[in-house]
Design a protein around this nucleic acid. Structure first.
Lengths: 227, 227
DNA sequence: AACAGAATGTCAGCTCATTGTCAGGTTTAA
DNA sequence: TTAAACCTGACAATGAGCTGACATTCTGTT
């Protein structure tokens, strides 16, 4: 049986959705707050329906938390705000779909089914990063360089992914520590150098460019197409 | 609804992009020639995707026409030639982004979304400094002079950036030492002269003007565009 | 116009900060 | 428990930045 989590503070709407989905044979959890939703994450969920605004926080923040934990569960965002930018933002942080309020309950259920099916067939949105000779499949954390799969450690992977996602952009060591290592960890800036070295040795020297006195950025091979 | 213009002579590619973007909720115009594209400029456009080579002219000329009209719409250039990237980005008020063929359609759509967002927040623009023949991309730490990319060292870069950000303003050597070198460092004022020399040699003599007895300022080429 | 003095242009070499590289100890994950 | 990953410190290599010396240009005065 498929398990669905609905995070929605409008109880009427939530219960109505729950009922329809249960008729479809789904097992539905309903949370009216983010706090409650977090406790329900212990369940093995197949789809999450997430409202944009909630009494104790933004749905999008909850989504970010999920993605930070590498959760791959599809998320459908609900929002009353019609301007496109919010939709775009929602999608970029990894929402699989969205709906603007008001909507037909039946349509939402249809979309939930789409997500369930895509999750099964594995054809969901492939999170790929392509930059020159680099290809990154973020779903299974695979890194390819020049057509060959290279085994990278977690930090190496996160580092090169950030650089590949922002080709040409120069990052200072401090900036990289923030973005890749996070604010909780405080390694030396020299740690960055070491990891850059590892990546260079595993691939090619020019994969990462040194901008002396400023930091690192993706090398030109990340810009030049290989064919 | 956001409006996107695609100028691409490969009809298959164009239609495929159109379809994907329309699924994202964008309103897409497709032009296979520059002539057709010009007529579509009457529409209020949010992003333009522009191929490099078109049956009736160069995409880059179309971009120049746009900029001559002070159009601020972001432009994403498509090119198969990797050696032209620096030129595209370095052109005055140049392209906002580029992609080398072949590319993933999804990645292009993602970049269109980035441009839409940046256009709203107005963030990307502030990271570029344009002054006559000078273009500085502070995110990338790239410096372009007269369309050519010039490799500058850290201090050279910081110095010319300050001058380009404040054209017409004359800075004393002491002032430059404070602003560029910072209060922690105490080099001789002659150090400024040396760096000015390096910049002049790497670009052109008249990039920095000497105000005898007072200091330096950006040359007139940095104020009057010479196209 | 010629001159002196000051300001600036120019160059080369030295210094030292930055970065590359590696080994070893510590932590983390299987 | 064991192996891998991570971080750190040490040392080497590199090159940017600084300085001092000398050349050149400019300015104001005679």
């Amino acid at each position: 049986m498929k398990q669905v989590l609905i995070v929605e503070d409008d109880e009427n709407l939530g219960k109505s959705l729950k009922k329809i989905m249960e008729e479809e044979g789904m097992n539905v959890f309903l949370a009216t707050t983010l706090e409650r939703a977090r406790t329900l994450l212990s369940e093995p969920l197949d789809v999450i329906v997430l409202d944009w605004m909630l009494p104790d926080g933004q749905g999008i923040d909850f989504l970010r938390e999920l993605r930070a934990k590498n959760a791959v569960v599809p998320v459908i965002m609900l929002t009353a705000r019609t301007d496109l930018i919010d939709k775009v933002l929602g999608l970029e942080t990894g929402a699989s779909d969205y709906m603007t309020k008001p909507f037909e309950s039946r349509e939402l259920v249809a979309r939930v089914r789409v997500q369930l099916r895509e999750k099964l067939t594995g054809k969901a949105r492939e999170e790929k990063v392509v930059a020159g000779k680099i290809l990154i499949n973020d779903l299974d954390k695979d890194f390819f360089y020049d057509g060959k799969k290279i085994s990278l450690t977690k930090m190496e992977y996160e580092l090169v992914k950030l650089l590949a996602e922002n080709p040409r952009q120069t990052f200072s060591r401090e900036n990289l520590l923030d973005k890749v290592w996070g604010y909780e960890n405080f390694p030396t800036t020299r740690t960055v150098d070491t990891h850059v070295l590892q990546i260079r040795q595993k691939t090619a020297d020019d994969i990462i460019e040194t901008i002396r006195g400023l930091g690192y950025r993706l090398g030109t091979m990340g810009i030049v197409s290989s064919n």
